[in-house]
Amino acid sequence: MFNESTHKKHWLFPDLAHIDKLRKEAYDKHIETYTPLNPITYEEQSLLIRHYSKELIKFCSVYNPPVPPGTIYTALTYFNRIYLREASIQLQPRDMMFSCAYLAFKVDEYNLSIDQFLKVLPKEMQSLVGHTVISFELTVMSALNCELAVYSPYRPLHGLLTDMKVRHSEEVELLKDKSEKYLSLSILTDVIFLYPPSQIALCAIYISCEDLGIDIEQYMTECLFSDQPDGMKQAIKIVRTQDEILKQHNNKYLGDSEWKIIEEKLGKCRNPEFDPRDPNFTFRNKQI
């Protein structure tokens, strides 16, 4: 399953420096190719991507019946994978937010027609967003190398919680709520490119147990790492590293006025060939 997946083979990386290198190379490549005047900087692009990662989760949360957390994770993963290979002057984060959501809904069989997908938006936005989503569908798939299988940490999270409920006497329902809240913050960071879903899920539970005063180390030692002498030590090291990434990431979000300034700057320097708002836009599912 996961061990044989493209998710593990092609979308997990050794460290944060490697991930940043991929993003920077993608940014530089498109800046050199298009050479716009006063381009958005790499740092500004990074902040805008963080902003729209949060907006993507908000957007997915308005549907009824609710979009499953694993499907939201799929959409968020697509969105962030794109910018390991592409740049915002070509594929604007706002456009990619809607495109990745619609593709994830289809892949994970959260079945909506395009009209149902657009219905949650204000009427004045529906036509443009519909045009954008349809125009960029194959482009998004191309940017992802058609590797659309995403393994969510929500399944191992719930599996671990169920096992703890059977083996452990602690209040698991309270732990479930706190772990899911922690996970919703964690998956906004680059941990999705560094760790398999099971390790992301374990981190969410471990940190939540610490906050609630629940002793999880006995459960981990006896049930998860009973045949691995160094397993517990390695697991805690991974947990601490993930938690530090989350803390650093949470200090880098934009206020409303800040992201709007960057968005306006991007609108003036983006490649019009990829801009559905441009009157000369003729692009439709172009391969990149």
Rank of each mutant, 00 (worst) to 15 (best):
V166R: 13
E273H: 09
L22R: 11
F225V: 14
Y63L: 05
L183M: 01
F225N: 10
K24E: 11
L160N: 09
Y219V: 05
N64S: 10
T35A: 13
D95Q: 02
I31Y: 00
L144H: 06
G213R: 15
A143P: 14
T71P: 02
E109V: 03
V150M: 04
L12K: 09
P122T: 09
D243T: 08
M125H: 15
Q92V: 05
I114M: 14
F136I: 07
N80S: 09
E170S: 14
F225Q: 10
G231C: 11
I238G: 05
H249D: 12
I288M: 08
P93M: 15
E43Q: 02
L148M: 01
T6D: 14
L174T: 10
A101L: 11
F13S: 01
L194W: 07
L37M: 15
H7A: 09
K286L: 04
L76S: 08
R284F: 10
F79R: 09
L37Y: 15
D190T: 00
Q287E: 08
N64T: 09
M125V: 04
A143M: 07
L37H: 15
E109G: 03
T139I: 05
D211T: 01
N280M: 00
L175I: 02
A26M: 12
G70Y: 06
D230L: 08
A17K: 15
K260R: 07
